[in-house]
């Protein structure tokens, strides 16, 4: 299982990375492994508001459909439209081409509440 050391995490297996003033969001390598082949990703629209810990979209695999939760609150500034035709990017490159949305955060302090890579690794180990 790969962990992006630049990212912060939620217990529900989303990652978040700071890029300039925005937060870029996806699901972790562990999450994509558990879900199996992803066949559909449902994302919000640019301009939608998201709230920390609340679902902003969902991923569907052959096995299951799961909600994706927002690591921070704010306004969606970009969505990865490539996932519409190529959901497999989430499996192939979860921390790169499989990114899902970018958020302009409304509360900078929320970032500090996210799990560090080390803390997230422990969460995954405990689940196993």
């Amino acid at each position: 299982m790969a962990i992006d050391m630049q990212a912060r995490y939620l217990k529900s297996h989303e990652w978040a990375r700071q890029e300039e003033d925005e937060i870029i969001v996806g699901i972790s390598d562990h999450a994509q492994e558990q879900l199996g082949d992803i066949v559909y990703v449902e994302l919000p629209e640019v301009g939608d508001e998201v709230a920390q810990g609340e679902a902003f979209g969902s991923v569907e695999s052959v096995k299951a459909a799961s909600d994706i939760y927002a690591p921070v609150s704010g306004v969606v500034t970009a969505v990865n439209e490539e996932l519409e035709d190529a959901p497999e990017l989430v499996n192939q490159d979860p921390y790169g081409k499989g990114w899902m949305i970018k958020i302009e955060p409304s509360d900078p302090e929320e970032w500090d509440a996210l799990l560090t890579p080390e803390a997230y690794e422990k969460v995954v180990e405990e689940e196993a």
Binding site: D37, V39, Y40, E60, V62, P87, E88
Partner: peptide, 10 residues
């Protein structure tokens, strides 16, 4: 035989 469920969905 085994159907390709992933391709069928994608």
């Amino acid at each position: 035989r085994r159907l390709d469920e992933v391709k069928a969905a994608r």
